[in-house]
Simulated assay, not measured.
Amino acid sequence: MRFRNVLMAATMGVGALVAMAPQAGADTVKIGVIAPLTGGGAPWGIAMDQAAHIAAAEANADGGLDIGGAKSKVEIIAYDDQYKAAEAVSAYNRLINQDGVKYVVILTSASTLAIKENIESDQVLGLTAAFTSKSIDENTHYMMRLSSIPINYAKPLANWMAQNLKERRVVIVNPNDETGWETAKFDEEAFKAAGFEIAGSELFDRSQKEFQPLLTKIIAMNPEIINVGSTAPSTSGLIIRQARDLGYKGLFVKTGGPGPKEILEAAGSKEAVEGVVAMAFADPGTEGFRRLAGEYSKAIGQEPNQMIAPYYDAINVLLHAIEKAGTVDDTAAVIAAMGEVLPMPSIQGGELHHGDRQILSPIFVTQMKDGEAVVVGSVAVTE
């Protein structure tokens, strides 16, 4: 299925889920989702939206959340920020001022930073997937990271690569935005510490589709590895395809934002992506992930991006924390309760742990073999 057909299916699926959502009222827990549901980041955004709907449907199947002895249904309201900070601000204002939301899940770094001060002043509980470490600081009280980010896994991931790959000369490539800057910073530090040689670090506009001039420059640096960092999956595939067309024979690695199926589709062939090594937030072979993938496929018509696993886990933690706190309106009590409900099981097995205003999620390593992303290792995340 081509990507625009996936987006049509996603829109239909989301529309159907919203139509089935409980009517607004005092007995309803509303959770907003701000994520790119169109464009290059859509595989991540649709995964986030559907993870929220799946978790909500499971809670509602049991009558809703048990809050102080009364049942409260869960409603998900999602808006497309198109990977743009300005759109995120508009979406946030609609969620808070029109929809009456007290809990917001945000995908991107730019969107998180754009609404961070509003979340604090409005005392809205925010769960962010942002890679930037700037999302949390000493003035942050109502924001929590929903998964491990580069600061948690970059060094152990680089160490794993140093132990398992023979190549050593690396060029790092990232989008020219907050997510890309953060990924490039931590990757460069981690790869150097692990004994790799950094031949260069390049940035590009996230909307860019033509990479021959940039890749010509990169290939002239004689890299053995090109790390596409936090580049969107479909764009990563374009970079791989165009690099192969220019004669690059070396290895690709991806240290952020996985999406092997989208990378393969954009790259055009199994041969182009053979051997690609990437971090992953999921092990698709686990029973829990297969269940999530099945629910996603019912709504969307294809397999989910692997990010669905930490998104689902984080929203599940939030729902448990609301029950633990015994309140919907007191978001400070709910965010405190998140530390009390952790550690708790991940959908994939193992445990989620509580870090410094963060859920620490497991990180895996995959390698593309005959068109499939095969789990070949895991890394221990650190705070």
Rank of each mutant, 00 (worst) to 15 (best):
V170M: 09
E188D: 10
M161T: 11
P175I: 12
E167M: 12
E178G: 08
V171F: 09
T183L: 12
E189G: 00
L165D: 06
K166R: 14
T183V: 09
R169C: 02
N176Q: 01
E189H: 10
N159Q: 14
A162W: 06
F186S: 13
W181A: 01
T179F: 05
D187A: 08
V173R: 00
A184K: 07
M161N: 15
D187N: 11
W160T: 13
I172H: 01
N174Y: 06
V173T: 03
T183R: 13
V170I: 07
K166N: 13
D187V: 11
V170C: 07
R168Y: 03
D177I: 00
I172V: 12
W181D: 05
D177K: 00
M161E: 15
K166Y: 06
A162G: 04
K166A: 14
W181Q: 08
L165V: 08
P175R: 08
N176R: 00
I172A: 05
L165N: 04
E188C: 15
E188K: 10
T183Y: 06
E189Q: 14
A184R: 10
T179S: 07
E167H: 11
G180K: 04
K185N: 12
V171E: 09
T179K: 02
N159W: 02
V171M: 11
L165T: 09
N176M: 06
F186L: 09
N174A: 06
I172N: 05
P175S: 14
L165S: 03
E178W: 02
N164L: 12
V171N: 08
N164Y: 14
I172Q: 03
V173E: 02
